[in-house]
Design a protein around this nucleic acid. Structure first.
Lengths: 255, 255
DNA sequence: AAGGTTAATATCATAGAATGAGAATGGCGG
DNA sequence: CCGCCATTCTCATTCTATGATATTAACCTT
């Protein structure tokens, strides 16, 4: 998606561009497809996927290339070493136990968020392991937080980029609605979403900020909309906000 | 570890070299450390790790760099699309249910194996999620299979590279012992390990081979040594072998 | 706090790697 | 058996990647 068409480290950037397409496709891609999607010359694409494959980040199959197993081991290393994740873990458990809801930890990667860790709250068992899932920044409480709570972000421009957005309940948000939403999140320091990204799911989220003011992640708490009719007036948002602050204060600042 | 110091795609190779060190270290590394470990110039290392960070495959913290969250989402994509994994899943469950043991699926990445999927058998609950763990090829049943069952591999040279090896029970294997072991695995078509990599763990494993004879992975079944005193004479090895063949026969050949 | 030390980033000329056009090979399906 | 599509190879040109050095920033010691 991102096309860093600048000079420096071009081939490396392109390698990750290819990898990103493999990840995005969620199905095997033929070399030609890859070349088309990335906009690179076939020969170039070929050399890049060969390197990716050699290192295990891509795999070749009968019907094309997919992401490779090396990503799994790198992900494992990340999970074992990420300070935010390690610090947040017990707090996720605490939140999930206390509320019976699902506690989730996201970090931002470029223009999306990635689910880093999750503790399911109670009843309904979890069938799929969505950890590692990549989601958009806008619809969804935990995503909005990244946009709204980053002082660097120009909310107006961002809203313009995003709009119009269609939510899971069918609502369509225009520029002004998105902007108002983001501004609201920014001033309140937390976000609430009702049936935004997933129908019948309500969530509240708050930013995890280090002492230097950088956003390290987003802490979300979600459950069935039916069970959360009174989120706005409940203590949940401030609970989440407090928990997020607790995490942030324990993570040493990046520099 | 691998140093592809050839000309083509040098910078991309180096990028993965850096990433590999980050993964291996399992702790934050400072830029200088990274440069030393990879043998690259500091300036070069810096540019590479910046690109990695920009794409989310590395993260910067107060005390150095670690692997980054993008690896998680790529890993997720891999898990959702890998044919071997998808095909093997039900068979892992079946094996684990039938035997009460732990069924594991590994694939090879360069000179190591990565745990792709696992179904725990019965009693003892699993505390850590070791999926993604990177292990050596030699000690351990599931690893040996990759070396022994690949007709391309020169067992004698491989044994020479490996020896001497110290097992978890303290045994030290010299060249001849390793060679004999590998040859045995090759002729029998499955491997057995007792207290080799983990003390008090016994395992048996067989290669997953596609119709073209390429090794796609390794299927292992493991449990406490005490419960598996009679593996050699039991039906387990051939059960595993049969299951591995079943998987292999359902995966379309790579080309 | 201030000075000394180490780490991270910027600058720049040169070498050589990366690129893309096209040709050649290899597989697959008809 | 033949033609088609995907992949791999070849090669000259250009621009990117490199590494020595200089600069800035962070850190720790006292």
């Amino acid at each position: 998606m991102t096309k860093p068409q600048q000079n420096p480290m071009r081939s490396v950037h392109r390698a990750f561009q290819v990898l990103s397409e493999l990840e995005l496709a969620q199905r095997p891609l033929r070399l030609t497809d890859l070349a088309q999607r990335t906009g690179l010359h076939i020969a170039t694409t070929q050399r890049l996927v060969n390197v990716l494959t050699e290192h295990g980040y891509a795999s070749r199959h009968s019907n094309g290339y997919t992401a490779g197993p090396a990503a799994l081991s790198t992900a494992h290393a990340f999970a074992m070493t990420s300070p935010v994740r390690l610090i947040a873990r017990p707090i996720l458990e605490e939140l999930a136990n206390a509320t019976g809801l699902t506690a989730s930890l996201y970090v931002r990667v470029q223009n999306s968020r990635v689910l880093i860790d999750r503790v399911e709250g109670g009843r309904r068992p979890q069938y799929s392991l969505p950890i590692g899932e990549r989601l958009p920044l806008y619809p969804g409480a935990a995503g909005k937080v990244f946009l709204a709570c980053d002082p660097e972000t120009d909310l107006d421009a961002t809203a313009a980029d995003l709009a119009p957005v269609t939510l899971a309940d069918g609502t369509v948000l225009e520029h002004s609605a998105v902007l108002a939403d983001l501004q609201d999140v920014r001033t309140r320091g937390f976000a609430i979403s009702v049936n935004e990204r997933q129908f019948d799911t309500t969530a509240t989220a708050a930013p995890i900020v280090d002492s230097a003011g950088r956003i390290l992640g987003s802490l979300g708490l979600s459950g069935a909309t039916a069970e959360l009719r009174d989120v706005e007036s409940s203590a949940l948002p401030s609970d989440v906000r407090r928990a997020a602050q607790a995490i942030g204060s324990r993570v040493p600042p990046a520099n």
